[in-house]
């Protein structure tokens, strides 16, 4: 069984937000909401500065608190470890939103909770997620973390990297190359 994850090269990312718009049109994310977003983390004092630019989204955590706290099972882990929300089962109680340390979820205007799906509908067809496919700097990589020969596994072995808030213990599956 695949274990899908993303590896994002922060050296290449320019913070253009193409990944954000691409997600918006691909998945018809309503105006005013987003499933992914861009962070600029600056460190240092003028003129000695360092900056990491990151495209962030749901980390499809292996130890997903959003799935555990969902009272209805609407939040679930599907094939390949992709965390999805089944809109027909969601009550909009927002427990999952409160449980996510990354603030990756939001309430869709239609009432159910929405978030990044890793473009499940594309992945099923063997395509990369929309954000990965659009990125002009090709800094995003999607694939099976379980498979040692996958591009993502190779990148993780060859480059220093970090995940976000590992201390929260959610076992995130998006890694940032530094």
């Amino acid at each position: 069984m695949a274990r899908y994850g993303m590896v994002i090269d922060t050296k290449r990312c320019v913070g253009c937000a193409d990944c954000v718009v691409a997600c918006q049109t691909e998945n018809n994310v309503p105006e005013g909401f987003c499933r992914d977003w861009i962070v600029e983390a600056l460190d240092g004092e003028y003129p000695d500065l360092r900056m990491e630019i990151r495209s962030e989204r749901c980390n499809h955590c292996e130890n997903a608190p959003c799935v555990r706290c969902c009272p209805t099972g609407a939040s679930q882990i599907t094939d390949g470890g992709i965390v999805l929300v089944e809109e027909a089962e969601c009550t909009g109680c927002k427990a999952c939103i409160a449980s996510c340390p990354y603030d990756a979820r939001f309430v869709h205007p239609e009432g159910y909770v929405d978030k990044c799906t890793f473009c499940y509908h594309r992945v099923k067809e063997g395509q990369d997620p929309a954000c990965v496919a659009v990125c002009p700097t090709k800094c995003m990589h999607f694939g099976d973390l379980e498979d040692p020969h996958s591009e993502v596994s190779k990148l993780l072995r060859s480059r220093p990297n970090h995940a976000l808030i590992p201390e929260a213990g959610t076992k995130p599956k998006i890694f940032y190359l530094t």
Partner: peptide, 9 residues
């Protein structure tokens, strides 16, 4: 094959 954010939007 890859547009910029403005083209995508």
């Amino acid at each position: 094959g890859r547009l910029c954010p403005r083209g995508t939007g």
